[in-house]
Nucleic acid binder design. Structure first.
Lengths: 135, 135
DNA sequence: GATATACACTTGATTTCTGAAAGGATGTAG
DNA sequence: CTACATCCTTTCAGAAATCAAGTGTATATC
């Protein structure tokens, strides 16, 4: 399904998704046009889902990075899920998981105060175990 | 430091980092040239760290996505850290954290068999608690 | 109040890239 | 052998990026 050239293309685009097709082509020993048509095929197959940005969270004003292991208090998950949906500015990812908790919630906050406020509200819906990222 | 236009630029580039500068400019009511120079400044400031790709892990052949809470067996972290470094194909991210564990390791594997093999080797250096992502 | 300076943006010209069309090489099936 | 499909290259017109002025505005300086 994916040959070595496709893999190289994906690797290079992961390093720098704004690289010109011509230059990408040189890296994988193809013309820019052939490279572009491979990229289009990878998009159509759904292997490539999109092109995005790596930003510096601290310089964006987010100084606190946390993981929350979520334990729902009862069988109704919807209140928690809609709480998460309504706080998407803080939420990086929310995974349903197997293990101790029901969900693993990754978040970012400008300050500890905002984290604290978030936790107070979160605790209305679920219990949690907090893990703060140091590095 | 960052004005509303910069924030919009970052938002649009997060949605699609391959958007032409001209088109991005239209979205933020600037010419392509002015937009490009703002983007260059954001890069120089380190706010923008790079441009990358969103891929579909399943279609890339990775069917297992896991988080590992790591508990080092002793005070020496180096053996674990070099083990992680030597398995970067599986490792997505490795965070030093405060909380129960010392590290939070996010990984992906093609199969449960490879996960199992990884865990066997990992267990030589540290103890862990496994969390598998369902969705 | 006049002048200098810095900054951000626009305009216009040149270079570079992209995307479409046509054609060539290779492999497969009838 | 022929038809067909796939993947690549070449060519070329149009689009975008880049570079070099030039304009406008705010702030500082005398």
């Amino acid at each position: 399904m994916l040959d070595e050239t496709d893999r190289q293309i994906i690797e290079e685009l992961t390093k720098n998704s704004r690289i010109p097709m011509k230059e990408l082509g040189e890296k994988v020993h193809l013309t820019g046009q052939a490279t572009a048509s491979r990229v289009i095929k990878l998009e159509e197959k759904g292997v490539i889902e999109g092109y995005t940005l790596k930003t510096n969270d601290k310089k964006m004003g987010y100084h606190v990075h946390a993981f929350l292991e979520i334990f729902t208090k009862n069988l109704h998950h919807k209140p928690y899920l809609s709480f998460v949906a309504s706080h998407h500015a803080y939420v990086i990812r929310n995974y349903k998981v197997s293990g101790q908790g029901c969900y693993l919630l990754e978040c970012k906050f400008p300050t500890n105060e905002e984290l604290d406020q978030f936790l107070l509200e979160l605790n209305l819906y679920v219990n949690y175990k907090l893990t703060i990222v140091i590095r």
